[in-house]
Every structure is written in C-alpha cells, then in structure tokens.
C-alpha cells in the first residue's frame, strides 16, 4: 500500500516510478559490494541509535534526544582520538569509544534529572538538548577542534590507531557493524532474561503498577535506562567517526537520531527487530542516493517514503489491535 502511494506521488511529481524503483534497488542491493559497502554501512548508526531509542521506549522513556547524544558522542570520540595519539592502537580506539559512551550518557543525564527531580517531560528537554549538542559539534569544528589549516569546518583526520578495523576486507564495512550486532544480542538478553530487564519492561507497561505490584524503584529504572540509551546513542557517533568518516563534520548525521525513532518502532522495540529495520532504512537511504544520481529524483522523496512506512505500520497496528480487541470482547461474552 505504501509502495502504491509512493508510486502515485512519484508519478504526480512527473517521475517514472519503475525507473525510480530500479535505481533504488540497484543502489541498495544491486550487488554484494553495494549491499555491504553502502547499505550496511548506512545501517550502522541507525542500528546503534535505533537500539538506544528502543531501549528507552520500552521503559516508557521518550528519549527523542538520540540526535544530540550522537553528536556529543562523536565530539568526545574525535577529541580523544586527536588528543591521546600516543596510546597504542586498540587502547586508543577503545578509549575514544568509551569517551563517546560517557558523553552520550552525560547528555542524557540532564533531561533524566529534569524529569525525575522537576517533573519536566523528557520529550521537550531531549529535543532542546539536541540543538545544544548539534551546535556544540558545529562550534568544535569551527573553533577548538578545527583542522590545522583552519579552512574547512571539520576536524583533522584521526590517526590509524584510532580507527576501527574493516570487518570484511575490500569493503567499507567496519567493525562497528559487528559491535552493533553484539550490543543487540546483549540488550535482548538483558531485556528478556534479567531482573533489571523485567523491571524495565514493567515500568514501561505501567509505572504505577510497577511500584505497587513489584516494589520496583521506578526512578532508578528510569534513570539507568535513560543513561544507557544516551550512552548507546553516543556510541553511534563514536563508531561513525572512528569507523567511517575518520573526522568530525558539522553535518555528520543526516537526522539519524530522528530516523532511529522509526527504526525502533518498526522493529517492534525489540533488538532483533531493530537489526532488520535498521538495514531496511540503510537500504532506503542508500537507494535514495542512487535515485538522485541515476534517475534525477530528489532524495527528499525518501523521507516521504519513510514517513509513509511509519504511518502505514502505525495504522495497521492499530487496526489489528482494534480487531483483536473485538474478538476478545466476543470471547468474553
């Protein structure tokens, strides 16, 4: 249905939908190398950020701040990579990633405390923190961390020792992808098999009930989940700069922190699902590039498709829920 709507819109825009679809497929899954070097590489930050959002949403924490957390993570990672260049290889890159985790967590601490101590909704505060984080990164690449010649708004390239190794030789896919998969496995385990995971899901289902029934310290669960979510989003930024770009740019993220919300939702807020949807959105973005190049169709169309996909899933989900509710009602009678 979504595809139909998208096709009609494209035709109304004066484009050939078949040509568009062909370019889209070629640019995302056209060959093994395209799939690995473009689609999967695009999927990596979406995977981390999607996991961050999914974890938070499972606990009922509306962390819309992945975008800002990602940027401060990238800033911290690049700063460490540029500063402690004497550290031997594995330590330097590990330190850089650790810094991005800490920075992302710290960025989430502000809205977490504002929520728990002052009762201010995290939707608003995380959005505001996004802007601060984005401008912080912009300031860094224009100011303190600008490349040596001071011409371009970017940092110097980080040394080899600070770079994540490639995962499949001959492609651009880096170790970050594997890290994301391991992280997804860990999160799935924590959510399903541990006491904390149970508490987290209970708080997400109903904070009031969680307090009464399970004597769960909801504030502690919310705080820890918020910090973990921010840390993972920070890692998205750290992995991107150490694995792919090797430098910090002003417009590093193409709204990944927001796309991550769609990724998390369509993945059913489950780590395994997030892996699938992150790769799907990676393919969409990879295909969008090809569509623009080969068929002259503005990449903005992909955002339209993205929105349609989210709305379609939301709508189907609600309609299904209504049907199930109906049946349940009949059985109860």
């Amino acid at each position: 249905m979504t595809l139909g709507v998208a096709a009609v819109l494209l035709m109304l825009g004066g484009y050939d939908p078949v040509q568009a679809a062909a370019a889209m497929l070629r640019g995302s899954v056209g060959s093994w190398n395209t799939f690995v070097s473009i689609t999967l590489v695009r999927a990596v930050p979406l995977l981390f950020a999607g996991l961050a959002v999914a974890l938070a949403f499972r606990a009922g924490v509306w962390n819309i701040g992945a975008e800002g957390q990602l940027y401060v993570g990238a800033v911290a990672g690049v700063w460490v990579a540029l500063t402690f260049t004497d550290l031997p290889g594995p330590f330097l890159v590990t330190s850089a990633l650790t810094a991005s985790v800490v920075a992302g967590g710290a960025w989430a601490l502000v809205p977490a405390l504002m929520k728990l101590r002052l009762g201010i909704g995290e939707v608003i505060t995380t959005i505001l923190m996004n802007f601060v984080g984005i401008y912080l990164a912009a300031w860094m690449v224009h100011g303190p961390l600008q490349e040596r010649r001071g011409v371009f708004p970017q940092t110097d390239r980080i040394v080899d020792a600070a770079r994540l190794p490639e995962l499949i030789s001959g492609t651009r896919l880096h170790l970050g992808f594997a890290l994301a998969l391991v992280l997804a496995g860990m999160l799935a385990f924590v959510l399903q098999r541990t006491r904390f995971g149970f508490h987290l899901r209970a708080v997400g289902a109903s904070p009031a009930a969680a307090v009464v029934a399970g004597r769960i310290d909801t504030n502690r669960v919310i705080l820890l989940t918020f910090l973990a979510s921010g840390a993972i989003a920070g890692l998205a930024g750290g992995v991107e700069v150490t694995g792919l770009t090797y430098a910090l740019y002003e417009d590093l993220s193409d709204g990944w922190g927001y796309t991550a919300i769609a990724v998390a939702l369509l993945g059913g807020l489950r780590p395994g699902g997030v892996i699938v949807t992150a790769i799907f959105f990676g393919a969409l973005q990879a295909g969008a590039g090809a569509m623009q190049r080969d068929a002259g169709i503005p990449a903005a169309w992909v955002d339209v498709v993205e929105a349609l996909v989210i709305l379609a899933v939301l709508g189907l989900d609600r309609i299904r829920a209504a049907r199930v509710g109906h049946h349940a009602g009949e059985e109860a009678l």
């Binding site: 825009g13 509306w62 819309i64 939707v123 709204g255 927001y258 796309t259 919300i261 769609a262 939702l265 503005p298 903005a300 169309w301 992909v302 955002d303 339209v304 498709v305 993205e306 929105a307 349609l308 989210i310 709305l311 939301l314 709508g315 989900d317 609600r318 309609i319």
Partner: peptide, 29 residues
C-alpha cells in the same frame, strides 16, 4: 492516526515531521 486510530502521538508526530519536511522539499524541486 493519533486521534482517529489512537496511534502513539510521539511516533505519529515524528512521522508527520519527517514526511512534511520531505514532501515540501520534493514538491519544491
């Protein structure tokens, strides 16, 4: 979506924002 179907407001809002920005950009071009 958010009122008629009772879908989550935050997620619907995100979709509408992404779609609005994309749609206007595409139409403009």
């Amino acid at each position: 979506f958010a009122i008629g179907l009772g879908a989550d407001q935050i997620i619907t809002g995100t979709a509408v924002t992404i779609g609005g920005l994309g749609m206007t950009g595409a139409l403009y071009q």
